[in-house]
Computed example of a mutant assay.
Amino acid sequence: MNTLFAILIDGMIYASWLFLVAAGLTVIYGVMRILNMAHGSFYAIGAYSAASLVGWYFNGDGDSSPYWSYALLLGCALVAGLVVGVVLEQGLLRFMRGRDETLMVIVTYALLLILEDVTKLLWGVDPYFAYQPYRLLGQSEIGDALSFANYDLSLVVVSIIVGLIAWYALNRTNKGRLLRAVIHDREVAMAMGVNVNVMFAVTFVIGSILGALAGALTAPAISVTPGIGIEVIVLAFAVVVVGGLGSIGGAAVGALLVGLTRSFAVHLAPEIELFVIYGVMFLVLAVRPQGLFGQILARKI
């Protein structure tokens, strides 16, 4: 029973992290039809920004409450995602709207490599640590002799909140309905007076903020080192492919499926841990090539 509890809780924690990473990627693809390979760099920039600022905050001589560090994490994600998203979308991607999806993959992959070098220029190659917010919340005992960090458990709550906000914004607000109209038929939306260019810009910035948020919230739990963005984009890609490109619900289900499967492998067969994620992706795509919640798009002639 303890092993089962450990598998379920570990799987939920890992799934919540995967969803936070993949949410921004699937939002951008759902609206703009861009498989944004640079999303991993948004994650890395959010992590580096949070780790450096939190480290500065705790090394200072002020008497401020340590709990303000959580506000710093959120602030770093907002500012970093906003700045990077606006610069890239307005400085490059807006000139390439409507181009072939394969070309956009190549362009965003080039941006990933460029931004990886930019992070090295700004923060160097030494690891950054921001462990204080992680330790601050302590640990909880679950079941018999099972101990989990409360910070990890809080990520589950954050991912649920992010998912509910995204669902509400898309389905219960006027702007969300306009965005769904752009998703379903861009040309008709333009004919009805929807400013598609503004919708694209806002969507890309929201996706970049979500990517930076995932990095900022992960920074206290890891060693922030060069290359974390490239590692993350592979996992995020696996999740959105399993769930269905462009579907928030699909990203949630895909993250849960991958997270629980990986947790079972870690506890019961650790030698196949790296294989199971891609094994799940292979099995899903063999049955549904468009993913679990992906839509089959009609081809325009």
Rank of each mutant, 00 (worst) to 15 (best):
L25T: 01
T102Y: 12
I165T: 07
Y43Q: 05
L217S: 07
G207N: 04
V198E: 04
T261P: 06
R99V: 15
I34F: 02
S247F: 13
A251H: 06
G75E: 08
I106C: 07
V21F: 01
F95Y: 15
V239Y: 09
S247I: 14
A80P: 07
G207V: 02
Y67C: 02
I142V: 15
A286D: 05
L88I: 08
V202T: 02
Y29G: 01
Q132A: 11
R288E: 12
D117A: 14
G250T: 08
L82H: 02
I106G: 09
G291V: 15
R135C: 07
V287S: 03
S263W: 11
N171C: 01
L4K: 07
R186M: 07
V86G: 00
D185N: 15
G24K: 09
G207R: 08
G40R: 05
G138E: 10
A77S: 09
R177P: 00
Y131C: 03
V202P: 00
F293H: 04
V105F: 13
H39C: 02
S263F: 11
D152P: 01
V287E: 04
L292K: 11
D117N: 15
D63S: 15
G215K: 02
F5T: 00
S69F: 08
R99W: 14
G124L: 11
V266W: 10
G46Y: 07
R172A: 12
G46S: 07
G46D: 03
L268C: 02
P133T: 14
L53W: 02
K120D: 06
S41E: 11
S263T: 04
D100N: 14
E187R: 14
Y43C: 04
G55W: 00
L155G: 00
I230R: 04
S49F: 03
Y168R: 03
A265G: 03
A251Y: 08
Y109T: 11
L146G: 05
A191D: 02
A298V: 08
Y151W: 07
L153S: 12
L178F: 06
A214P: 00
L20D: 04
L121H: 13
G30L: 10
R99E: 15
